[in-house]
Simulated assay, not measured.
Amino acid sequence: MTDRFFLLFLRLPLVGRVLCIASISIVFFGIVIHFVEPNVFPTIFDGIWWAIITASTIGYGDFVPTTFEGKMVGIALIVVGAGFVSTYFVSLATTAVQRQNAVNEGKVAYVGKKDHMIIVGWNERSRYIIKEMTKLYPRLRIVLIDHTLREKPMPDIHVHFIHGSADQDHILQKAGIDEAHTVIITADPSVSEVQSDMRTILQLIAVKGCNREIYCVVEILTKQQVNNAIRAGADEIIESNYLTGSVLMNTLVNHGISKALSSILTQHHGSKVEFIELPDDLIDLPFSMIIQKFFQDEMLVIGIKKRGETLVNPPFDTKVETGDELLLIRGHYKNKSSNS
């Protein structure tokens, strides 16, 4: 039995072991002083109270040993008990600092709320996503996975950092992959485009292997790897080079178009582009009537999503059918009313 308790004691963290020793010492000296000077310390509780005050170096002076034996007990308490109490507080502070350093260095697993978002890779796109998402959804929990960072990159924003590569299962488990609702895998700017896409697809396979139901958005740089990303299970693919090239080309043809697109896509500036399900009362109506009905609510319908294919500005006589989704832009005042 004694060996069992000793083993349990050794398994405690350093702070716990020091606290146990300090508590035992205080109780022991409290009991001893009660029997040495029963007139000054009429109860055991009074003795323990005096031991706590003395060991913590506070010294109220409400209980003071008067005999030689009592003073010797006090000296022993100061030498032994105060040392353990001081060690306990130092160990506690050290543990707190080490814990905070471990969190900043990405060594601590995420144990927060469920339905969080995981972002893989640190770059300017990740920085932008984190800043915008925390503005739009302050309660959203975000976990960042990156193998190049040495510590949390944005200490002023509530983001949990995990150091490591997202193609390893234990790193994904530390990020809470089983409870997350979305994963965004960004391209690695430190390697070539082909290598970046290969790494992205490998990370996508690992994510889907850990949680097949999670929604995965991946950034692909080369056209040749788009089909491989689809085969690996990507729910949505962002071809960043293609999108950037399209914007550059349109800017050459129509000067200033990039600012207009940026204004539309930047949600907190007053507009919001989104898909919504087609209301039942609008089934089989032409696209022209759909535009008129939503325009009254300060929403501009710009397209239809049919069987997974998005039609932007389709012919006005196009009929919307069951299962279609509407692509629209919510107006500034509509956003204000909906947020309130």
Rank of each mutant, 00 (worst) to 15 (best):
283 I>L: 13
283 I>S: 12
284 D>L: 10
284 D>W: 06
284 D>E: 15
285 L>A: 07
285 L>N: 14
285 L>S: 14
286 P>C: 13
286 P>A: 11
286 P>I: 10
287 F>N: 06
287 F>A: 01
288 S>K: 11
288 S>D: 08
288 S>M: 04
288 S>R: 09
289 M>F: 05
289 M>E: 15
289 M>S: 14
290 I>P: 00
290 I>V: 10
290 I>R: 02
291 I>G: 02
291 I>K: 14
291 I>R: 12
292 Q>G: 03
292 Q>D: 13
293 K>C: 04
293 K>T: 06
293 K>I: 07
293 K>E: 15
294 F>H: 02
294 F>A: 06
294 F>D: 10
294 F>Y: 09
294 F>V: 06
295 F>Q: 15
295 F>I: 06
295 F>P: 03
296 Q>D: 15
296 Q>W: 11
297 D>L: 12
297 D>E: 13
297 D>V: 09
297 D>F: 09
297 D>P: 04
298 E>F: 11
298 E>W: 03
299 M>Q: 09
299 M>H: 02
299 M>C: 14
299 M>D: 05
299 M>Y: 08
299 M>R: 13
300 L>T: 12
300 L>S: 11
300 L>H: 14
300 L>Q: 09
300 L>F: 13
301 V>I: 06
302 I>T: 05
302 I>A: 02
302 I>P: 05
303 G>S: 09
303 G>K: 04
303 G>W: 04
303 G>R: 08
303 G>I: 05
304 I>G: 02
304 I>K: 00
304 I>F: 00
305 K>Y: 00
305 K>C: 00
305 K>M: 04
305 K>N: 09
305 K>S: 02
306 K>V: 13
306 K>N: 05
307 R>K: 15
307 R>V: 15
307 R>T: 15
308 G>V: 04
308 G>A: 00
308 G>K: 01
308 G>D: 03
310 T>P: 01
311 L>H: 13
311 L>V: 02
312 V>D: 03
312 V>A: 07
312 V>T: 05
313 N>T: 14
313 N>Q: 09
313 N>Y: 10
314 P>N: 05
314 P>K: 03
314 P>R: 01
315 P>M: 14
315 P>D: 15
315 P>W: 10
315 P>K: 04
315 P>V: 12
